[in-house]
């Protein structure tokens, strides 16, 4: 099959850029630890409030200025309703849902994960700036979806 010379050049440049780009993403994800949220950690959605650690949602210190944050996204709110995080803290979020699918997004940060019933999602974020961060549900979950929000205070 004949391919025009200019088309060969065009495709070669395009494909080269593509692989550079994929390489950058891959190095970022696997060598520098910038993975999307993940975790294969199952939980019975009907027993979330009885299952450790979600029987006691909130912050748990695990190191020097390092915390686990166990959060429940439910229709239509978050537990704990208010949370305070020390400035500069590295927070390992663990999020699940006892009912339908929700989103867990902290605006102005890279924290954006799906709370799927039956699974616990994991993501780590370091809060370097003080402020009152807005946490909202970004997946449609029912009639009160737009009211599903809370804040995290970093100071």
């Amino acid at each position: 099959m004949h391919i025009h010379r200019l088309e060969k050049i065009w495709l070669a440049i395009g494909v080269a850029m593509l692989f550079v780009f994929l390489g950058v993403i891959g190095v970022g994800a696997f060598a520098m630890g910038m993975q999307p949220p993940t975790g294969h950690h199952t939980i019975d959605p009907e027993k979330v409030s009885e299952t450790y650690p979600f029987n006691n949602p909130g912050l748990e210190q695990v190191g020097e200025n390092e915390y686990n944050a166990y959060m429940i996204a439910y229709a239509f709110g978050f537990k704990p309703a208010k949370m305070e995080v020390p400035l500069g803290a590295k927070v390992h979020f663990q999020v699940t849902s006892p009912d339908v699918v929700h989103g867990f997004q902290i605006t102005g940060t890279t924290v954006n994960l799906m709370a799927v019933p039956g699974e616990v999602n994991h993501y780590t974020y370091t809060f370097d700036k003080p402020g009152e961060y807005l946490v909202l549900c970004n997946e449609y979950c029912g009639a009160g979806h737009e009211f599903m929000a809370t804040t995290i205070i970093v100071k």
Partner: peptide, 16 residues
């Protein structure tokens, strides 16, 4: 489904 749990990172990347 990149922001979802239950799928290993390597398989997300392969499909990317």
């Amino acid at each position: 489904q990149l922001m979802e749990p239950g799928i290993a990172p390597v398989w997300k990347y392969i499909q990317v």
